[in-house]
Every structure is written in structure tokens, then in C-alpha cells.
Write a protein that binds this DNA or RNA. Structure first.
Length: 742
DNA sequence: GCATGTATGTGA
DNA sequence: CACATACATGCG
């Protein structure tokens, strides 16, 4: 019996069912849609909806729409629902949380979680063939190529795609088509993408040192606790941190849950993937921005369908809708690459901790040189801490020598960049049949080119930056916007001919000097210009390992955890490079980078030597590196930050005002400063020109909000921005917890 | 984010 | 006046 009728209530027309749908657009909130009668939707369902003249995808954010909002008669209907498991509730809460924290729209965050809309569609079945076993039809001509294909198909095996068959039989795709038309091959529909292979959590791992085993036990315990925890895994280079967190991944896999590993630059870590494969038998699913097209689609679907037990990725992998995430590892947690600087501005390490908290799962932050933030959290007990003290394999720490570039006897000759002390060390290393490495974090030939006769400096038309001469490619390049140009024959200002002089060194110039000093040495240059794609990096690495290279010269790309047994000398050409500029973390970052570079020297049984050229040998960074005293450096750095109420002892947020019209940008920035929030614990600095006052043709100003640690900056920022109209031609970006300072 | 309408400018 | 281009708006 109908309950409504029975209770005397008139059964009117059935109410319109409405849902809130979040769209991947920068809108303030979700939109309401009507649910068709024949459709069932739960929160998290992926749907397609009409939006103006377009059709866009969205995710059902709530099943009870806003009745007081758009009237029912103006609602549009959900068009269809995609055949996918709904986005889990944790993922949805995480998206809302990140949006609120970063002051961006939830739709923009959703875009990061579903960055391949094509992956929502069912994948097209792939055509594959099996042998039909039929006899050839009359008129069939047997050829060598056809025979090869048929012979190949004699072997038992799964159906194979035309492309695979053609490749294996070394024939054209037309041969396959011909055979299919003759009825000798039977077409079958194949699942378009094979499932990723399953890592084997039960494979025995490597033998761990007592320290490693203790650390692995502690991390495993965190996984088995099945609750939120954040743990710093602090271990010097070569202490075997990776093996330790692999054990935590194994524990997570044994629970049947997914594990996520965030790496700073996934594209550069094929060594990491190999290591993973050695431990678990297969490679994990990768997720990063270089992944495109079908690969990206397949990876997303595998993750969402719970078919990717382990995902390794760059920062953006954090936002993917994992159905049952059980562990997050942030490797090299101190790396600046985790900070996303445009669009939704966030720090992946911090967001990872938030994701762990919302999901009730453990997060491991791994580093040899932890960030001050993480270290402070470990010291105050907010995070757990696991120390891995020993350098695995028995190699001792390298001997670090500071070369004072101010002293006449250690200064390089004019127009040279290598101190005689370093050159002597290089001679010794080469004579001993060992390898050396020179590090300079500056691409190109020279950072600045100027006209000898009038002093004109070659500058980027779109940015406040010098154009960098690249001799290898015979071009000038802007390292900020990608502008390139030929080196002009005559000075654009005074028209003098061949008047340009290079000022200062880049790696190319150091390579030139090395070629003069050591004409017989085999030299390899390693920069992002010379190495296009991960394969190229791998090739150089192999060559160095095979000792086909005596001297390696390069930038940051070279500093990452590759280890070379015969490398015993590291020369840092300009140790002061990172210290300039108004960066809050300049000292910390320089220390981290140089520490990592120094760690390349002498890893096996050979002792390593590091020579660090600097103009400030008394600087705490240099002293800490020479004395191998990281903790003293961090303590001093912490004292300074505390004294100035800077993070992690105070909070920062930045506003970046940008636009093409400099006067308009300047005016808005000054207007914002005028209506800045006030209070005892609140201070607004600026506006000041942003570090690159002109970037990609846009003028930029920065305002900095500095508050005490306990202050919630988001509401402050929100009311601040709402208090003043912002013209459409000017953009105001909010950077909560900015990395660079002014 | 993007398609759309409206305001504004450019040239015959 | 026709047409191109800049900016503001709303999308449920």
C-alpha cells in the first residue's frame, strides 16, 4: 500500500530529483542539475552535463541539491553517467580542503584530479587476431611475409594486435590486413589496455642493515596501525632510505591497499624505477606531466579502477582519486620541485600530509637534508621521526675543502673559473684513473653578454632577465619564458661589430676551460639542454659507469642520486650561486643542493674529495658543509627564522598582482596595500616588484602577509581580496606558504 | 574554461 | 555602416 495515500497526504507529482555537480572550471561552487528518472546517481559519480552550449564532465558533489538555489524549472538534466567507480569521499573532501587552503576554486582542484577527461570514456576495444585454422581460400598467394606471420601465430599465445604482429614478423601492417581478409586470421576484441602488472609484495627483500631493519619495522608499524601518522625518515645519502620505505610499501600491498610515492622529478628517475622493479618484480604505474595521450588515459583509468597497486609520480599524482590509498611516501621531501607555482599554488609535501590526515593513513617524508619545516614538526612531536645514521656500504664521508676565491693564491686566472687548487686535484684524480665531476648550476655559456664598446646588455624582451648565450646551439635564450634569438652580429645599441663579450661562467664555458686544461680527458656535459628526454640521461649515466668518461660537467640534473663507483672528486664551481636573491630559503636550499652534490663523491670503498669554490667561506652554509654538521647549520637557520617570525615559526602568504599594463598593476598593488588587514599579529609588506618583475610579458608586484603561527590566513586573505574590485585585465594570485620571499 | 553578447575601434 | 577586436559575463 502507498504510504503517502494511506497517511492521507496527497501524492502530487514526484519531486524533481536534483544533484550538485562540481565542474572542472574555476567557478565558486558546484552547480545543480536534474537527475533523469531512469538514472541513479550517488555522490562521487562521474557525469556529463550541459553547460551553456557545451557538454562538460563533472562529479556529483552532493545528492541533495540546493533547493533554495536555481528554480527547478530552470534546471538542466544530467546527460549521462560514466561507467566508473565513484570518486571516493576522501578524494572529494581533499579537493574541498585544498581549495579552501589555497584559496582556489574547488573546480580548479578537481581539474587536477581528473586531468584527462578522455579517460572517462570507455576505452575502445582493441582489434587483435588469433589464427583461424582455416585453409587458404582459392586464389590465395603465399608470400614470405605472410608465411612469417602465420608461423608466428602457430605458437600458442594471447591474441595479438596488428601492430605487434607486424613488428614481430618484420612486415607491414598491410600483410596482416591481407591475411585477415583471406580469413586466415580471426579478429577478436581485446581489452584496450592491459592491466598494469602486480608488484609482488611477498618477494624477499634485500638484507637490511640493523639500522635499516629497525627503521623498516617502525614504518611498517605505522602502516599496520591503519591510521594517520606523519613520519620523517632522516638518513644521510647512501643510508638506504629507499629500501626502508620499500618495506612499508610491501606492508601496504599486503593489506591490499594502494601506495603512492611522490618524487620531485619523476622523468629523471629511471634508476628509481629499476630499483623498484628489482624489489617488486615489476615497474609501478607512473604519473607525471610528460605522460600524454593513451598512456596518460590508461594510467588514470588503472588508478581509478584500483588496478594500480603502486603509483609513483610527480606532485600532481597526489590529487588522483585513489579508491583505497594506504600509504604516501614523499621522497626528497625538501625538494623545491614539490612546490607548484602556477594555477593552484600548493606544496605537494604539505598537501600530502593533509591527504594522509583526511584519509587516516600514514605519510612518510624522506630526506637526507630535511626541510626546516619538517624537522621542526619532528622536533615538536607533530611528526614521528626515524633516523638512519649509517652510510651503507662502509664508505666514509667525503673530505670537503673550501676554496676561498678572494685569496690571490687560490683565485682562478682572469677569464678562468677553476682555482689552481681544484685543477691540481683534478690532475691527481685523472692520474689515479678515477673520475671527477664539476658542478655549476647554470646552463649555457655565460649568464650575461654585453657590448664591449657601449656596455649594452642583451636582455629578454618579455622578462626582467638577461639572455643567456648558448654556444652549443648558437643562440641566445631566456631561461624564464623560452624566448630565443640569434646572437646579433652588431650591437643593437651602438652598432659596433663583434663587440660582445661573455661575462661569467655557465657550464658550457667551464667545459671549454676543462678542454684546454685536460685535452686528453674524456668530458661529458650534463645539462637539460644536452639531455633531451630520460633516455639521454640514462645513456650518459651508463657511459660514466662504464668509465668511458673521465670528467663530468653539469647542472642540477647531474646532482640527483646516481652513484658512480669511480667518482672520487667533486668540484663546485660557484658555491655561492644560490645564496643571492631575496629567497627565504636560499641558505637552506643551497645547503641541500651542495650537500647532495657532495654526496656524489666516493661512495664505494674509495674516499671522496669535494672542493667548494666560494667567496664566503665563513658563511654558515659553507662551514656546515666543510664540517659535515648539518644539524648545527639547521639550528642556526632555525634561530634566525624564529627571531624574524618567519616560517615555520610564523606564517606567510603572498599576493602576486600581474598584468600587461604596468601602471594598472602598480595601482592595484598599491590599493591592496592601502586596504591591507591590520592587527597585532599581522603585517603586510610591499608592494615590491616580484623577483622577475616582468615575466612572459606580464608585469608583476608582490605583497607579503606575515602573521603569527596561530593565525588562520585564509579568512584574512579572503576578506582582503573582497574589499576591493579587481579589474578583469589584472590577475591576483594567492600563494599561501610561499617559498620565495620577495 | 569558454562561448557569448556588448562595447569599442578601424577603415571605406 | 560593415567588420574586426577587447572585455565582461554567465553558465545550473
Amino acid at each position: 500500500m502507498d504510504l503517502l495515500t494511506a497517511s492521507g497526504i496527497e501524492a502530487g507529482p514526484p519531486p524533481v530529483r536534483r544533484v550538485r555537480v562540481l565542474l572542472p572550471l574555476p567557478l565558486a561552487s558546484a552547480y545543480d542539475y536534474r537527475v533523469p528518472d531512469d538514472m541513479d546517481l550517488e555522490a562521487g559519480a562521474y557525469v556529463e552535463v550541459p553547460l551553456g552550449p557545451r557538454q562538460v564532465f563533472g562529479v556529483v558533489w552532493a545528492v541533495d541539491g540546493d533547493e533554495a538555489g536555481v528554480p527547478a524549472n530552470r534546471l538542466k538534466s544530467v546527460l549521462r553517467r560514466f561507467d566508473l567507480p565513484p570518486m571516493p569521499e576522501v578524494s572529494r573532501r581533499f579537493i574541498d580542503w585544498v581549495a579552501a587552503y589555497t584559496l582556489s576554486s574547488p573546480g580548479s582542484v578537481l581539474r587536477m584530479a581528473v586531468s584527462v577527461s578522455a579517460a572517462l570514456e570507455d576505452p575502445k576495444a582493441l582489434l587483435a587476431y588469433l589464427p583461424s585454422g582455416d585453409s587458404p581460400p582459392p586464389g590465395f598467394k603465399m608470400t614470405d611475409a605472410r608465411r612469417r606471420v602465420l608461423a608466428l601465430m602457430e605458437e600458442e599465445g594471447p591474441p595479438r594486435t596488428p601492430a605487434d604482429l607486424a613488428r614481430e614478423a618484420a612486415c607491414g601492417i598491410g600483410v596482416i590486413r591481407g591475411l585477415a581478409e583471406s580469413g586466415l586470421l580471426t579478429p577478436v576484441a581485446l581489452r584496450a589496455q592491459p592491466r598494469p602488472p602486480i608488484p609482488d609484495a611477498h618477494r624477499p627483500g634485500p638484507t637490511l642493515s640493523p639500522d635499516q631493519a629497525a627503521a623498516a619495522d617502525a614504518l611498517r608499524a605505522a602502516v599496520d596501525a591503519r591510521g594517520y601518522s606523519a613520519t620523517l625518515v632522516d638518513g644521510v645519502t647512501g643510508s638506504g632510505k629507499t629500501e626502508v620505505y620499500f618495506e612499508a610499501i610491501a606492508a601496504c600491498l599486503r593489506q591490499g591497499r594502494q601506495a603512492l610515492v611522490l618524487l620531485p622529478e619523476i622523468a629523471l628517475s629511471s634508476q628509481w624505477l629499476d630499483r623498484f622493479a628489482r624489489r617488486f618484480g615489476v615497474r609501478p604505474v607512473e604519473w607525471h606531466s610528460d605522460l600524454a595521450g593513451a598512456h596518460r588515459r590508461a594510467a588514470w583509468r588503472a588508478i581509478v579502477n584500483g588496478e594500480a597497486p603502486v603509483v609513483v609520480g610527480a606532485r600532481s599524482a597526489l590529487f588522483l582519486p585513489y579508491p583505497d590509498l594506504g600509504l604516501i611516501v614523499v621522497d626528497e621531501e625538501h625538494e623545491a620541485a614539490f612546490k607548484q607555482e602556477d594555477g593552484v599554488i600548493y606544496h605537494a609535501r604539505d598537501m600530502a600530509v593533509a591527504r594522509g590526515f583526511l584519509g587516516g593513513i600514514p605519510v612518510a617524508l624522506v630526506s637526507a637534508t630535511p626541510s626546516l619545516e619538517t624537522l621542526t614538526n619532528a622536533e615538536t612531536g607533530r611528526y614521528g621521526r626515524i633516523d638512519l645514521p649509517a652510510r651503507h656500504g662502509g664508505a666514509s664521508l667525503p673530505d670537503v675543502t673550501l676554496i676561498d676565491l678572494r685569496r690571490p693564491d687560490s683565485r682562478p686566472p682572469a677569464r678562468h673559473w677553476l682555482s689552481p687548487i681544484l685543477v691540481d686535484a683534478m690532475k691527481e684524480t685523472l692520474a689515479a684513473g678515477e673520475q671527477g665531476m664539476l658542478f655549476l648550476n647554470r646552463r649555457g655559456y655565460a649568464p650575461l653578454t654585453l657590448c664591449r664598446s657601449c656596455g649594452f646588455r642583451l636582455q629578454c624582451p618579455n622578462c626582467t632577465a638577461w639572455l643567456v648565450e648558448h654556444r652549443l646551439s648558437r643562440r641566445l635564450q631566456c631561461h624564464h619564458c623560452g624566448y630565443t634569438d640569434r646572437l646579433p652580429e652588431t650591437c643593437p645599441s651602438c652598432e659596433a661589430e663583434h663587440s660582445f663579450v661573455a661575462c661569467g661562467p655557465g657550464v658550457e664555458r667551464v667545459a671549454e676551460e676543462v678542454a684546454q686544461l685536460f685535452p686528453d680527458a674524456r668530458v661529458a656535459l650534463m645539462t637539460s639542454d644536452t639531455l633531451v628526454g630520460p633516455q639521454a640521461i640514462q645513456t650518459v649515466i651508463e657511459e660514466v659507469r662504464a668509465h668511458k668518461v673521465d670528467l663530468l660537467i653539469g647542472t642540477q640534473v647531474m646532482a640527483k642520486g646516481h652513484h658512480f663507483p669511480m667518482l672520487t672528486l667533486v668540484g663546485v664551481v660557484d658555491g655561492d650561486l644560490g645564496l643571492g636573491g631575496g629567497d627565504l630559503r636560499a641558505a637552506e636550499r643551497t645547503f641541500q643542493m651542495l650537500h647532495q652534490v657532495a654526496g656524489r663523491a666516493g661512495r664505494e670503498s674509495r674516499p671522496g674529495r669535494v672542493f667548494l669554490q666560494t667567496h664566503m667561506p665563513e658563511h654558515p652554509v659553507m662551514q656546515a658543509l666543510a664540517a659535515h654538521d648539518r644539524d648545527a647549520f639547521l639550528a642556526a637557520e632555525a634561530d634566525q627564522r624564529r627571531a624574524m617570525d618567519l616560517p615555520p615559526y610564523g606564517r606567510l602568504a603572498a599576493l602576486i598582482v600581474s598584468g600587461e599594463d604596468e601602471r594598472q598593476v602598480d595601482k592595484l598593488a598599491r590599493d591592496l596595500a592601502r586596504v591591507a588587514p591590520q592587527g597585532d599579529d599581522v603585517l603586510v609588506l610591499g608592494p615590491a616588484p616580484a623577483p622577475l618583475a616582468l615575466l612572459r610579458g606580464r608585469h608583476r608586484r608582490r605583497l607579503l602577509l606575515k602573521t603569527a603561527r596561530g593565525v588562520a590566513v585564509q579568512p584574512l586573505l579572503q576578506s582582503w581580496l573582497a574589499s576591493i574590485p579587481i579589474p578583469g585585465t589584472v590577475r591576483v594570485q594567492v600563494d599561501v606558504d610561499p617559498y620565495s620571499f620577495m
